[in-house]
């Protein structure tokens, strides 16, 4: 049985201010917010920037986003049949769409 989630996703990149875009994503019970965002990329808009590596294992810790104002892992948060607001992390530098700079400072490309 498929349900529909209304994903309100933060889009844009600095120096823009950013804005929300709304997507209707079909899902099965158990599907994650990350699944929903990947669905958007394959079906509606390939330019949505995301970051994740392990998809399932909750091992890479790359998929952190804010859902309805709370910091969560996109891959462990389930989709629900309602509006869900997805934004980049508030306390990190914003890079693009829902991606923020999460690499530890001493593991980034050195400034030359």
């Amino acid at each position: 049985m498929k349900s529909l989630a209304q994903l309100k996703v933060w889009r844009g990149a600095p120096p823009e201010e950013g804005h929300y875009e709304q997507y209707e994503v079909p899902f099965e019970s158990g599907n994650s917010v990350l699944d929903g965002l990947r669905y958007i990329r394959s079906h509606f808009d390939r330019t949505l920037a995301l970051r994740f590596a392990c998809i399932n294992a909750n091992a890479c810790k790359e998929c952190m986003v804010m859902v309805d104002g709370k910091t969560v892992y996109g891959c462990t948060t389930r989709l629900e049949a309602r509006e869900m607001r997805i934004e980049p992390l508030r306390n990190k530098d914003w890079i693009r769409d829902v991606v923020s700079e999460i690499g530890p400072p001493d593991e980034r490309l050195p400034e030359v």
């Binding site: 970051r51 590596a53 392990c54 294992a57 091992a59 890479c60 810790k61 790359e62 999460i102 690499g103 530890p104 593991e107």
Partner: peptide, 12 residues
């Protein structure tokens, strides 16, 4: 291409 020590198969 991801985070150091969190990418790839080993950590999973």
């Amino acid at each position: 291409r991801g985070l150091i020590g969190r990418s790839g198969a080993t950590v999973m």
